[in-house]
């Protein structure tokens, strides 16, 4: 049971790392990025390839850097032109990008399952609650916590973070004060993409690499963002943790309902609070 709660935290941490980027991007560009799962998947593959040469940590760093650069391109080439278009256009375009990314990965890396080994330093188990638990999984919880703390410190206490919060609330007012909101957006998309890519690397040792790995976690990430309150980090954090628990505890107590539970949670919370848990943004 306690082990299940820990596993819930592991999944919640991954969900948060992914959903926080989605929430930030929505806050700034009002864009719902259906390609976010593809960024996670790309990160895993890029990190995998780099790790074959230079090891896990280098793979993690390379995935973060490559995806950050990709994020800048994505913001300039796709999100900026799309920001005043109707949501359906954005949905179709980003969904199309996700399909292209999956195809690309298939043609570059093929369809063979590849497994990504966890770093040796963390390839141990810990005795916990009269059983054993892989240290690597605890490290993932640490990763999620580091992302949450890092983002909060960045948004609350840095000058750029202040501009991000200002632009998320009112991009025109922020820009009139002298903020180049396009550059702020490019930065936020870069950070979000890097987080997605690094989450892909971090998650990869738990499963085998597959081009579809992004699509699976994307649905849950969206639920986190919507339930948390569009654009809210705090809301996303709480919901990610909740969903992580529901996911694992559901398997234990209501196996036939597990795949439905996240949706039931979403419907329930939105009926109760239509703007999501947090209501206000950032």
């Amino acid at each position: 049971m306690a082990i299940q709660v820990l596993n819930g935290l592991v999944y919640g941490a991954l969900l948060f790392a992914l959903a926080s980027g989605l929430a930030l991007m929505f806050g700034l560009r009002r864009i719902v990025n259906f390609a976010h799962g593809a960024l996670y998947m790309l990160g895993a593959y890029v990190g995998y390839t780099a790790s074959l040469q230079f090891g896990f940590w280098a793979g993690l760093a390379v995935a973060g850097l490559v995806l950050a650069a990709l994020g800048v391109v994505l913001d300039k080439a796709v999100f900026r032109p799309l920001q005043h278009r109707d949501p359906l256009t954005t949905l179709l375009v980003t969904f199309g990008l996700a399909l292209i990314a999956e195809d690309l990965v298939l043609s570059v890396w093929g369809n063979d399952t590849m497994s990504f080994a966890e770093p040796q330093q963390l390839a141990h188990t810990l005795s916990l609650f009269e059983t054993t638990f892989p240290i690597y999984r605890l490290a993932i919880v640490g990763f999620g916590a580091a992302v949450a703390i890092g983002l909060v410190l960045w948004l609350r206490f840095s000058r750029v973070g202040l501009f991000v919060r200002a632009a998320s609330h009112d991009p025109v007012i922020a820009a009139v004060q002298g903020v180049d909101t396009d550059r702020v957006s490019a930065l936020v998309v870069a950070v979000s993409a890097a987080l997605a890519g690094m989450s892909g690397v971090v998650a990869a040792p738990l499963m085998s690499l597959a081009p579809s790995m992004g699509a699976d976690i994307l649905v849950d990430s969206f639920i986190v963002v919507v339930v948390g309150g569009l654009g809210s980090l705090g809301g996303a954090f709480i919901t990610a943790m909740l969903l992580g628990q529901i996911n694992v505890l559901g398997v234990v107590f209501m196996p036939e309902l597990t795949s439905l539970l996240p949706f039931l949670l979403m419907i329930g919370i939105l009926l109760w609070k239509p703007t999501g848990l947090a209501g206000a943004r950032l």
């Binding site: 202040l162 501009f163 919060r165 200002a166 609330h169 009112d170 007012i173 922020a174």
Partner: peptide, 22 residues
């Protein structure tokens, strides 16, 4: 601007710092 454009999600100090963005 007309209506003042004070950001509710920033504190007084943060609103002022925003004014120094240029």
């Amino acid at each position: 601007v007309q209506g003042r454009g004070i950001l509710p999600n920033l504190t007084v100090r943060e609103n002022l710092i925003l004014g120094g963005a240029a």
